[in-house]
Write a protein that binds this DNA or RNA. Structure first.
Lengths: 208, 208
DNA sequence: GTCTATATAAGGATAGAC
DNA sequence: GTCTATCCTTATATAGAC
């Protein structure tokens, strides 16, 4: 449980600074690889002072994950039954790719957790995430059966979208080593590539 | 440098047991998260005995990575200029998917390294891996220009293939939480899905 | 609220008996 | 070659002064 005791502005500011620093450190080194020294230094505080705001290293990590869950589910949640199916799914791809560009640390934080078997947020994966995926897979299946998109397996489609978009955040080091982009212009190429791939895949039979 | 002094059969057997155990532990917990105690226990040896065979924790990890590099590059290396382009690329997808099914620990070991910025094998990524990717991207570009496959960006195609196939190993926990497969039958569905997606993507214009 | 100093534990590595 | 015992560093967390 997060403490609900009221906090002053300076408290909130310090907590936010610690969480920001912790996102940096945890996403780069993983939970075990991160140290409180690194987090404290990145936050510009002493180690005991960090522990004045959070009960433990585990507590910082947990609060980070908890705070990001909604953000993480939001693009899939936005998939709308009333929109144009192909357009909705292409928008989803685009939104996920933007998140890889704009929130790569968050992506790597989640990726590291899942990679290790989700020891600290298995409940999120088997709970809210699975529930939402099941719901949206049913929606996609409905589009398939109505002939509004091509015949694809909804679950593997969702996995493919996750994989191809998150790849640019999670494997950023590798992508940059190979493409050697200035700034982030490779995200534009990725966008074009993925739009082409998924629009071809999803286009219902005979519509081209 | 690896010692080149000759080793007895029992030495080779113990080294192999340690590496096998270390692959288990490193792939699940990452370099920092893994402990020599865990590796020793999994190998059925005492901790000092493990260090009799390997100079350090780092040495075990390094030898694991080094020993897997060739295996990891092999499928892409097999992409053959003389074969049918679409068939060659679909075979590559299939081979990579099989590796995710049959060597998930190896996939997660590499994924964990890249996720953390490849601190211990950046040289592999910027060296042999990049060289091979550049070479095969040129090959694919040739196929595009000859009109033998559809117009796609070779690099982003390779990234997409990596992402969509390795996802089933690296995010195994998440995939299983959502699909709840008996055994590994979801790999068959993934195979069908990915074959469909990539054959549609790669088919040259007007060939269907 | 913030710091210095420190308690305590975990983990990598070594010494030395067998 | 293999083990027990131990060294020593690192890292989480706490005590207590200010």
């Amino acid at each position: 449980m997060t403490e609900q005791r009221p906090r002053t502005r300076i408290q909130e500011k310090n907590r936010a600074m610690i969480l920001e620093a912790a996102l940096d450190v945890f996403s780069q080194h993983g939970f075990r690889g991160a140290t409180l020294d690194q987090i404290a230094k990145a936050a510009g505080l002493s180690k005991p002072n960090v522990l004045y705001y959070f009960a433990s290293k585990e507590a910082i990590h947990g609060e980070l994950l908890a705070g990001l869950m909604d953000t993480w589910l939001e693009p899939l949640r936005a998939l709308d039954d009333n929109g144009d199916p192909v357009g909705e799914l292409l928008d989803y791809v685009e939104r996920k790719l933007e998140m890889s560009r704009d929130m790569p640390r968050e992506s790597r934080l989640f990726a590291g957790e899942v990679l290790q078997g989700a020891p600290r947020f298995g409940a999120f994966v088997t709970g809210p995430l699975k529930t939402l995926v099941d719901e949206k897979a049913a929606l996609i299946r409905g589009w398939v059966e109505a002939g509004r998109i091509a015949r694809v397996d909804p679950y593997h489609l969702i996995f493919a979208i996750w994989a191809t978009t998150q790849h640019y955040a999670d494997f950023d080091t590798q992508v940059r080593a190979i493409l050697q982009p200035e700034d982030n212009e490779h995200f534009d190429d990725a966008r074009v590539f993925l739009r082409g791939m998924y629009s071809g895949l999803l286009r219902p039979d005979g519509s081209h």
